[in-house]
């Protein structure tokens, strides 16, 4: 039974995209993922409009003071099991905006992050690679909150 559930989970990760203060560079790369060239629907990845439907939260950009609360609420609205992927240098650590007066920092300052994908912006291939690594880490089921910080150091 768990095998079937894991199979289904790995084969159909529906994503929600949230921009907590990105410069839009990373967002364009996510759009590139969904459009014909990289078409991630091949792997069953679908962009969902509502956080209630999503399994994976793709966050881009550093978290601003204003956005921190909203990001937390979006995260809390998602049903378990849920995963967070931080896309871009900003989302991983705050990037060039770290230490700014209106910036909290990376996404992991606010919500638990499962996979970090560095780059400014990361290439679509890198994002796919990150998501695939995240999904592979599911194969022997792990608790959702377990963090995977492998990719942070460049």
């Amino acid at each position: 039974m768990t095998n079937i559930a894991t199979w289904a989970r790995v084969k159909s990760p529906w994503v929600l995209h949230f921009n907590s203060g990105a410069c839009n560079g990373c967002d364009i790369e996510i759009v590139a993922l969904l459009t014909p060239k990289y078409d991630v629907e091949r792997f069953g990845i679908k962009l969902e409009p509502s956080p209630r439907h999503a399994d994976v939260l793709l966050t881009t950009g550093c978290v601003t003071q204003q956005c921190a609360e909203r990001l937390k609420r979006i995260y809390e609205q998602m049903p378990q099991p849920k995963f967070v992927v931080a896309i871009g240098a900003c989302a991983c650590s705050g990037g060039v905006f770290a230490g700014n007066y209106n910036v909290v920092g990376g996404v992991d300052k606010v919500i638990p992050v499962n996979a970090y994908i560095p780059g400014c912006p990361p290439r679509p291939e890198a994002i796919i690679d990150g998501v695939v690594k995240l999904l592979n880490s599911l194969q022997p089921p792990k608790p959702a909150k377990k963090e995977e910080k492998k990719d942070v150091k460049q």
Binding site: W7, S12, W14, D55, P79
Partner: peptide, 11 residues
């Protein structure tokens, strides 16, 4: 089918 099963197993 995968979508359906996945949704069934979610919270």
């Amino acid at each position: 089918l995968a979508d359906f099963i996945k949704l069934l197993t979610k919270e």
